[in-house]
Design a protein around this nucleic acid. Structure first.
Lengths: 214, 214
DNA sequence: GTCTATACTTGGATAGAC
DNA sequence: GTCTATCCAAGTATAGAC
Protein backbone atom coordinates (compact mmCIF):
# COMPACT_ATOMS: atom_id res chain seq x y z
CA UNK A 1 0.00 0.00 0.00
CA UNK A 2 2.82 2.31 0.85
CA UNK A 3 4.67 2.64 -2.41
CA UNK A 4 4.98 0.59 -5.52
CA UNK A 5 8.37 -0.27 -6.93
CA UNK A 6 11.77 -0.21 -5.28
CA UNK A 7 10.62 1.20 -1.97
CA UNK A 8 13.09 -0.06 0.58
CA UNK A 9 14.76 2.85 2.34
CA UNK A 10 13.18 5.36 4.69
CA UNK A 11 9.62 6.11 3.77
CA UNK A 12 9.27 8.89 6.30
CA UNK A 13 11.10 11.43 4.16
CA UNK A 14 9.07 11.90 1.05
CA UNK A 15 7.22 9.68 -1.32
CA UNK A 16 9.18 9.46 -4.51
CA UNK A 17 9.18 13.01 -5.82
CA UNK A 18 7.97 15.60 -3.40
CA UNK A 19 5.08 14.70 -1.20
CA UNK A 20 7.31 16.13 1.49
CA UNK A 21 7.89 19.49 -0.11
CA UNK A 22 5.06 21.05 1.83
CA UNK A 23 6.42 19.63 5.05
CA UNK A 24 9.93 20.69 4.24
CA UNK A 25 8.74 24.22 3.62
CA UNK A 26 6.79 24.34 6.85
CA UNK A 27 9.76 23.10 8.84
CA UNK A 28 12.00 25.57 7.08
CA UNK A 29 9.57 28.38 7.84
CA UNK A 30 9.65 27.46 11.52
CA UNK A 31 13.43 27.41 11.45
CA UNK A 32 13.64 30.73 9.66
CA UNK A 33 11.18 32.43 11.99
CA UNK A 34 13.28 31.24 14.91
CA UNK A 35 16.66 32.28 13.60
CA UNK A 36 15.93 35.21 11.29
CA UNK A 37 12.69 36.52 12.71
CA UNK A 38 9.60 37.59 10.84
CA UNK A 39 11.37 40.29 8.88
CA UNK A 40 14.02 37.80 7.79
CA UNK A 41 11.58 35.14 6.73
CA UNK A 42 11.35 35.97 3.08
CA UNK A 43 10.35 33.49 0.43
CA UNK A 44 13.96 33.21 -0.68
CA UNK A 45 15.31 32.68 2.83
CA UNK A 46 12.78 29.99 3.64
CA UNK A 47 13.24 28.25 0.32
CA UNK A 48 16.99 28.17 0.73
CA UNK A 49 16.59 26.73 4.19
CA UNK A 50 14.35 24.04 2.76
CA UNK A 51 16.62 23.53 -0.24
CA UNK A 52 13.76 23.91 -2.64
CA UNK A 53 12.95 26.39 -5.34
CA UNK A 54 11.54 29.64 -4.11
CA UNK A 55 8.53 29.52 -6.38
CA UNK A 56 7.21 26.41 -4.67
CA UNK A 57 6.10 28.49 -1.74
CA UNK A 58 3.56 30.25 -3.91
CA UNK A 59 2.47 27.05 -5.54
CA UNK A 60 1.87 25.26 -2.26
CA UNK A 61 0.72 28.11 -0.05
CA UNK A 62 -0.18 31.01 -2.30
CA UNK A 63 1.84 33.54 -0.31
CA UNK A 64 4.60 33.80 2.23
CA UNK A 65 2.11 34.89 4.87
CA UNK A 66 0.09 31.74 4.36
CA UNK A 67 3.16 29.56 4.74
CA UNK A 68 4.03 31.39 7.92
CA UNK A 69 0.53 30.77 9.23
CA UNK A 70 0.82 27.10 8.34
CA UNK A 71 4.05 27.02 10.29
CA UNK A 72 2.30 28.61 13.26
CA UNK A 73 -0.47 26.02 13.00
CA UNK A 74 2.04 23.21 13.04
CA UNK A 75 3.82 24.62 16.06
CA UNK A 76 0.55 25.11 17.91
CA UNK A 77 -0.62 21.57 17.28
CA UNK A 78 2.71 20.05 18.27
CA UNK A 79 2.86 22.04 21.46
CA UNK A 80 -0.72 21.48 22.52
CA UNK A 81 -0.23 17.72 22.23
CA UNK A 82 2.87 17.92 24.36
CA UNK A 83 1.33 20.30 26.86
CA UNK A 84 -1.79 18.24 27.28
CA UNK A 85 0.19 15.10 27.98
CA UNK A 86 2.43 16.87 30.46
CA UNK A 87 -0.33 18.44 32.49
CA UNK A 88 -2.44 15.32 32.78
CA UNK A 89 -0.50 14.01 35.73
CA UNK A 90 -0.32 17.24 37.65
CA UNK A 91 -2.02 17.69 40.97
CA UNK A 92 -0.31 20.35 43.04
CA UNK A 93 0.86 23.88 42.25
CA UNK A 94 4.49 22.90 42.75
CA UNK A 95 4.10 20.10 40.26
CA UNK A 96 2.51 22.53 37.84
CA UNK A 97 5.47 24.86 38.15
CA UNK A 98 7.81 21.92 37.59
CA UNK A 99 5.99 20.95 34.44
CA UNK A 100 5.84 24.56 33.29
CA UNK A 101 9.57 24.87 33.80
CA UNK A 102 10.29 21.75 31.78
CA UNK A 103 8.00 22.91 29.02
CA UNK A 104 9.60 26.34 28.96
CA UNK A 105 13.03 24.77 28.49
CA UNK A 106 11.76 22.66 25.63
CA UNK A 107 10.05 25.61 24.01
CA UNK A 108 13.19 27.63 24.31
CA UNK A 109 15.39 24.97 22.76
CA UNK A 110 12.98 24.17 19.98
CA UNK A 111 12.12 27.83 19.47
CA UNK A 112 8.40 27.22 19.40
CA UNK A 113 7.46 30.31 21.35
CA UNK A 114 9.89 32.32 19.29
CA UNK A 115 7.74 31.47 16.29
CA UNK A 116 4.68 32.69 18.14
CA UNK A 117 6.38 35.91 19.21
CA UNK A 118 7.65 36.68 15.75
CA UNK A 119 4.25 36.10 14.22
CA UNK A 120 2.54 38.34 16.75
CA UNK A 121 5.08 41.11 16.34
CA UNK A 122 5.19 40.68 12.59
CA UNK A 123 1.44 40.75 12.21
CA UNK A 124 1.46 44.56 12.25
CA UNK A 125 3.26 44.70 8.95
CA UNK A 126 0.97 42.49 6.87
CA UNK A 127 -2.66 43.50 6.36
CA UNK A 128 -5.06 40.84 7.54
CA UNK A 129 -2.48 38.80 9.38
CA UNK A 130 -3.43 40.01 12.83
CA UNK A 131 -6.81 38.26 13.11
CA UNK A 132 -5.35 35.03 11.73
CA UNK A 133 -2.60 35.00 14.33
CA UNK A 134 -5.04 36.01 17.02
CA UNK A 135 -7.30 33.09 16.20
CA UNK A 136 -4.39 30.67 16.48
CA UNK A 137 -3.64 31.98 19.93
CA UNK A 138 -6.90 30.66 21.29
CA UNK A 139 -5.66 27.17 22.15
CA UNK A 140 -2.78 28.59 24.16
CA UNK A 141 -5.14 30.59 26.35
CA UNK A 142 -7.52 27.68 26.67
CA UNK A 143 -4.71 25.38 27.68
CA UNK A 144 -3.31 27.79 30.25
CA UNK A 145 -6.73 28.33 31.73
CA UNK A 146 -7.41 24.63 31.91
CA UNK A 147 -4.08 23.95 33.62
CA UNK A 148 -4.68 26.71 36.13
CA UNK A 149 -8.22 25.68 36.88
CA UNK A 150 -7.33 22.02 37.29
CA UNK A 151 -4.49 22.76 39.68
CA UNK A 152 -5.60 25.70 41.73
CA UNK A 153 -9.24 24.81 41.97
CA UNK A 154 -12.03 27.28 42.56
CA UNK A 155 -10.40 28.57 45.73
CA UNK A 156 -9.01 31.84 44.47
CA UNK A 157 -11.47 32.26 41.65
CA UNK A 158 -12.99 35.32 43.22
CA UNK A 159 -9.75 37.21 43.65
CA UNK A 160 -8.24 36.15 40.32
CA UNK A 161 -10.42 34.56 37.65
CA UNK A 162 -8.65 31.71 35.82
CA UNK A 163 -9.23 33.32 32.46
CA UNK A 164 -7.47 36.50 33.48
CA UNK A 165 -4.68 34.60 35.15
CA UNK A 166 -4.22 32.50 32.01
CA UNK A 167 -4.02 35.65 29.93
CA UNK A 168 -1.28 36.96 32.19
CA UNK A 169 0.60 33.68 32.13
CA UNK A 170 0.64 33.56 28.35
CA UNK A 171 1.78 37.18 28.27
CA UNK A 172 4.55 36.46 30.74
CA UNK A 173 5.57 33.42 28.77
CA UNK A 174 5.83 35.43 25.58
CA UNK A 175 7.75 38.19 27.29
CA UNK A 176 10.22 35.83 28.88
CA UNK A 177 10.85 34.17 25.56
CA UNK A 178 11.52 37.54 23.95
CA UNK A 179 13.97 38.64 26.58
CA UNK A 180 15.69 35.29 26.73
CA UNK A 181 15.99 35.11 22.99
CA UNK A 182 17.34 38.64 22.82
CA UNK A 183 20.48 38.09 24.80
CA UNK A 184 20.67 34.34 24.73
CA UNK A 185 20.65 34.03 28.50
CA UNK A 186 17.99 31.71 29.82
CA UNK A 187 19.31 32.04 33.37
CA UNK A 188 17.14 34.96 34.37
CA UNK A 189 13.93 33.36 33.18
CA UNK A 190 14.73 29.98 34.68
CA UNK A 191 15.59 31.67 37.95
CA UNK A 192 12.15 33.16 37.93
CA UNK A 193 10.62 29.73 37.52
CA UNK A 194 12.65 28.53 40.48
CA UNK A 195 11.25 31.31 42.61
CA UNK A 196 7.79 30.54 41.34
CA UNK A 197 8.19 27.04 42.68
CA UNK A 198 9.09 28.37 46.11
CA UNK A 199 6.02 30.54 46.07
CA UNK A 200 3.88 27.63 44.98
CA UNK A 201 5.24 25.59 47.86
CA UNK A 202 4.41 28.45 50.20
CA UNK A 203 0.91 28.53 48.81
CA UNK A 204 0.49 24.83 49.37
CA UNK A 205 1.70 25.10 52.95
CA UNK A 206 -0.64 27.97 53.74
CA UNK A 207 -3.83 26.81 52.14
CA UNK A 208 -5.39 23.70 53.66
CA UNK A 209 -6.06 20.77 51.34
CA UNK A 210 -9.56 21.84 52.38
CA UNK A 211 -12.45 21.20 50.04
CA UNK A 212 -13.65 18.17 48.14
CA UNK A 213 -10.23 16.98 46.97
CA UNK A 214 -9.26 13.45 48.00
CA UNK B 1 18.46 84.86 20.48
CA UNK B 2 15.93 82.45 19.14
CA UNK B 3 15.77 83.36 15.51
CA UNK B 4 16.77 86.39 13.51
CA UNK B 5 14.31 88.01 11.15
CA UNK B 6 10.60 87.54 11.00
CA UNK B 7 10.37 85.00 13.82
CA UNK B 8 6.89 85.28 15.20
CA UNK B 9 5.08 81.97 14.93
CA UNK B 10 5.88 78.71 16.68
CA UNK B 11 9.56 78.18 17.20
CA UNK B 12 9.21 74.66 18.47
CA UNK B 13 8.79 73.15 15.03
CA UNK B 14 12.06 73.62 13.18
CA UNK B 15 14.50 76.40 12.78
CA UNK B 16 14.16 77.98 9.38
CA UNK B 17 14.82 75.17 6.94
CA UNK B 18 15.18 71.80 8.55
CA UNK B 19 17.16 71.60 11.74
CA UNK B 20 14.26 69.40 12.71
CA UNK B 21 14.70 66.82 9.97
CA UNK B 22 16.48 64.47 12.33
CA UNK B 23 13.69 64.86 14.84
CA UNK B 24 11.04 64.44 12.21
CA UNK B 25 12.67 61.21 11.08
CA UNK B 26 12.90 59.86 14.59
CA UNK B 27 9.27 60.63 15.30
CA UNK B 28 8.28 59.07 12.01
CA UNK B 29 10.31 55.96 12.83
CA UNK B 30 8.49 55.65 16.13
CA UNK B 31 5.18 56.06 14.37
CA UNK B 32 6.05 53.51 11.70
CA UNK B 33 7.29 50.96 14.22
CA UNK B 34 4.02 51.32 16.07
CA UNK B 35 1.71 51.03 13.11
CA UNK B 36 3.63 48.95 10.56
CA UNK B 37 5.94 46.99 12.81
CA UNK B 38 9.63 46.33 12.33
CA UNK B 39 9.16 44.54 9.03
CA UNK B 40 7.12 47.44 7.70
CA UNK B 41 9.55 50.12 8.78
CA UNK B 42 11.46 50.52 5.56
CA UNK B 43 13.41 53.62 4.69
CA UNK B 44 10.75 54.61 2.21
CA UNK B 45 7.88 54.04 4.62
CA UNK B 46 9.53 56.09 7.35
CA UNK B 47 10.52 58.87 4.98
CA UNK B 48 7.01 59.13 3.62
CA UNK B 49 5.63 59.31 7.14
CA UNK B 50 8.08 62.11 7.89
CA UNK B 51 7.40 63.79 4.55
CA UNK B 52 11.07 63.98 3.76
CA UNK B 53 13.21 62.45 1.10
CA UNK B 54 14.20 58.86 1.63
CA UNK B 55 17.89 59.52 1.13
CA UNK B 56 18.03 61.75 4.20
CA UNK B 57 17.81 58.74 6.43
CA UNK B 58 21.18 57.57 5.22
CA UNK B 59 22.67 61.01 5.43
CA UNK B 60 21.57 61.55 9.02
CA UNK B 61 21.76 58.03 10.42
CA UNK B 62 23.78 55.95 8.02
CA UNK B 63 21.29 53.11 7.92
CA UNK B 64 17.70 52.28 8.68
CA UNK B 65 18.78 50.18 11.66
CA UNK B 66 20.55 53.14 13.18
CA UNK B 67 17.51 55.33 12.79
CA UNK B 68 15.41 52.65 14.44
CA UNK B 69 17.86 52.52 17.34
CA UNK B 70 17.74 56.28 17.66
CA UNK B 71 13.96 56.00 17.83
CA UNK B 72 14.29 53.42 20.57
CA UNK B 73 16.66 55.70 22.46
CA UNK B 74 14.19 58.55 22.26
CA UNK B 75 11.36 56.40 23.50
CA UNK B 76 13.44 55.06 26.37
CA UNK B 77 14.50 58.51 27.50
CA UNK B 78 10.99 59.92 27.30
CA UNK B 79 9.52 57.02 29.23
CA UNK B 80 12.17 56.91 31.94
CA UNK B 81 11.59 60.58 32.67
CA UNK B 82 7.88 59.97 32.97
CA UNK B 83 8.29 56.79 34.99
CA UNK B 84 10.70 58.35 37.42
CA UNK B 85 8.37 61.25 38.10
CA UNK B 86 5.39 58.96 38.58
CA UNK B 87 7.05 56.61 41.04
CA UNK B 88 8.54 59.30 43.23
CA UNK B 89 5.35 59.75 45.21
CA UNK B 90 4.61 56.09 45.68
CA UNK B 91 4.62 54.48 49.09
CA UNK B 92 2.40 51.43 49.16
CA UNK B 93 1.99 48.45 46.83
CA UNK B 94 -1.55 49.49 45.92
CA UNK B 95 -0.28 52.89 44.94
CA UNK B 96 2.42 51.26 42.86
CA UNK B 97 -0.16 49.21 41.01
CA UNK B 98 -2.23 52.34 40.43
CA UNK B 99 0.75 54.13 38.97
CA UNK B 100 1.69 51.09 36.89
CA UNK B 101 -1.83 50.92 35.53
CA UNK B 102 -1.80 54.58 34.54
CA UNK B 103 1.58 54.18 32.90
CA UNK B 104 0.45 51.10 31.05
CA UNK B 105 -2.48 53.01 29.60
CA UNK B 106 -0.22 55.82 28.47
CA UNK B 107 2.26 53.43 26.94
CA UNK B 108 -0.51 51.68 25.11
CA UNK B 109 -1.97 54.86 23.69
CA UNK B 110 1.36 56.31 22.72
CA UNK B 111 2.68 52.95 21.51
CA UNK B 112 5.96 53.26 23.33
CA UNK B 113 6.15 49.66 24.40
CA UNK B 114 5.09 48.61 20.94
CA UNK B 115 8.30 50.20 19.69
CA UNK B 116 10.26 48.21 22.23
CA UNK B 117 8.52 44.97 21.32
CA UNK B 118 9.04 45.46 17.61
CA UNK B 119 12.70 46.22 18.09
CA UNK B 120 13.24 43.16 20.25
CA UNK B 121 11.38 40.89 17.86
CA UNK B 122 12.97 42.49 14.84
CA UNK B 123 16.47 42.25 16.21
CA UNK B 124 16.73 38.64 15.03
CA UNK B 125 16.65 39.70 11.43
CA UNK B 126 19.45 42.26 11.45
CA UNK B 127 22.99 41.18 12.35
CA UNK B 128 24.37 43.12 15.27
CA UNK B 129 21.08 44.67 16.27
CA UNK B 130 20.44 42.34 19.19
CA UNK B 131 23.17 43.62 21.51
CA UNK B 132 22.26 47.23 20.75
CA UNK B 133 18.64 46.67 21.66
CA UNK B 134 19.65 44.66 24.68
CA UNK B 135 21.80 47.48 25.96
CA UNK B 136 18.91 49.91 25.64
CA UNK B 137 16.76 47.62 27.75
CA UNK B 138 18.94 48.15 30.79
CA UNK B 139 17.17 51.28 32.06
CA UNK B 140 13.81 49.52 31.96
CA UNK B 141 15.08 46.75 34.22
CA UNK B 142 16.80 49.19 36.50
CA UNK B 143 13.68 51.26 36.80
CA UNK B 144 11.44 48.28 37.52
CA UNK B 145 13.84 47.01 40.13
CA UNK B 146 14.07 50.38 41.79
CA UNK B 147 10.29 50.75 41.90
CA UNK B 148 9.90 47.29 43.37
CA UNK B 149 12.63 47.73 45.94
CA UNK B 150 11.36 51.11 47.05
CA UNK B 151 7.83 49.87 47.51
CA UNK B 152 8.12 46.35 48.78
CA UNK B 153 11.19 46.83 50.92
CA UNK B 154 13.59 44.08 51.91
CA UNK B 155 10.79 41.98 53.37
CA UNK B 156 10.37 39.41 50.65
CA UNK B 157 13.86 39.74 49.29
CA UNK B 158 14.77 36.21 50.27
CA UNK B 159 11.84 34.56 48.54
CA UNK B 160 11.92 36.75 45.44
CA UNK B 161 14.95 38.93 44.72
CA UNK B 162 13.95 42.36 43.31
CA UNK B 163 16.13 41.87 40.25
CA UNK B 164 14.35 38.70 39.29
CA UNK B 165 10.96 40.18 40.01
CA UNK B 166 11.83 43.20 37.89
CA UNK B 167 12.83 40.92 35.04
CA UNK B 168 9.49 39.18 35.25
CA UNK B 169 7.59 42.45 35.41
CA UNK B 170 9.26 43.78 32.29
CA UNK B 171 8.59 40.48 30.53
CA UNK B 172 4.94 40.60 31.56
CA UNK B 173 4.69 44.19 30.43
CA UNK B 174 6.08 43.32 27.01
CA UNK B 175 3.82 40.32 26.68
CA UNK B 176 0.70 42.24 27.64
CA UNK B 177 1.54 44.93 25.13
CA UNK B 178 1.94 42.30 22.40
CA UNK B 179 -1.35 40.63 23.11
CA UNK B 180 -3.22 43.88 23.53
CA UNK B 181 -1.79 45.27 20.34
CA UNK B 182 -2.64 42.10 18.45
CA UNK B 183 -6.36 42.22 18.86
CA UNK B 184 -6.80 45.80 19.92
CA UNK B 185 -8.51 44.90 23.14
CA UNK B 186 -6.95 46.42 26.20
CA UNK B 187 -9.69 45.10 28.44
CA UNK B 188 -8.00 41.83 29.32
CA UNK B 189 -4.74 43.47 30.30
CA UNK B 190 -6.40 46.24 32.28
CA UNK B 191 -8.51 43.67 34.05
CA UNK B 192 -5.33 41.98 35.13
CA UNK B 193 -4.08 45.24 36.58
CA UNK B 194 -7.31 45.57 38.51
CA UNK B 195 -6.81 42.14 40.02
CA UNK B 196 -3.22 43.01 40.80
CA UNK B 197 -4.46 45.92 42.84
CA UNK B 198 -6.71 43.64 44.86
CA UNK B 199 -3.79 41.34 45.52
CA UNK B 200 -1.63 44.26 46.53
CA UNK B 201 -4.31 45.36 48.96
CA UNK B 202 -4.41 41.84 50.35
CA UNK B 203 -0.66 41.93 50.77
CA UNK B 204 -0.83 45.21 52.63
CA UNK B 205 -3.49 43.91 54.97
CA UNK B 206 -1.55 40.75 55.77
CA UNK B 207 1.95 42.08 56.27
CA UNK B 208 2.38 44.38 59.24
CA UNK B 209 3.85 47.82 58.59
CA UNK B 210 6.51 46.17 60.74
CA UNK B 211 10.12 47.20 60.30
CA UNK B 212 11.87 50.55 60.18
CA UNK B 213 9.25 52.35 58.15
CA UNK B 214 7.72 55.39 59.82
C1' DG C 1 0.46 17.91 -10.11
C1' DT C 2 5.27 19.53 -9.57
C1' DC C 3 8.91 22.46 -10.37
C1' DT C 4 12.02 26.11 -13.02
C1' DA C 5 12.74 30.37 -15.05
C1' DT C 6 11.59 34.80 -15.35
C1' DA C 7 8.87 39.32 -14.80
C1' DC C 8 8.09 42.87 -12.02
C1' DT C 9 8.16 45.56 -7.48
C1' DT C 10 10.13 47.27 -3.52
C1' DG C 11 14.07 48.26 -0.51
C1' DG C 12 18.85 49.83 0.84
C1' DA C 13 22.26 52.76 -0.31
C1' DT C 14 25.10 56.37 -3.02
C1' DA C 15 26.56 60.19 -6.25
C1' DG C 16 25.97 64.40 -7.52
C1' DA C 17 22.82 68.60 -8.39
C1' DC C 18 21.05 72.41 -5.81
C1' DG D 1 22.14 70.54 4.65
C1' DT D 2 18.73 68.91 1.43
C1' DC D 3 16.84 66.74 -2.61
C1' DT D 4 16.82 64.05 -7.11
C1' DA D 5 18.18 60.43 -9.84
C1' DT D 6 19.93 56.14 -9.99
C1' DC D 7 22.18 51.53 -9.03
C1' DC D 8 21.83 47.08 -7.39
C1' DA D 9 20.13 43.57 -4.33
C1' DA D 10 16.23 41.26 -2.50
C1' DG D 11 11.34 40.52 -2.49
C1' DT D 12 6.78 38.71 -4.34
C1' DA D 13 4.47 36.46 -7.64
C1' DT D 14 3.38 34.09 -12.14
C1' DA D 15 3.81 31.79 -16.72
C1' DG D 16 4.91 28.03 -18.59
C1' DA D 17 8.12 23.81 -18.96
C1' DC D 18 8.13 19.12 -17.35
Amino acid sequence: MAKSGTASTVVTRDSSRSAGTRTRLIDAAIETLKTEGFAGSSARAIAECASVNQGLIFYHFGSVANLLLAALDTVSVRRMEQYGAAVEHVGSPTELVDVATAIFREDLDAGYVAVLVEMIAGASSTPGLGPEVSARLGPWFAFAEQAVTATLGPSLESVLPPGDLAYGIVALYLGLEMLTHLDGDSGRALGLFAHAKNLAALLEALSPPAAGQA
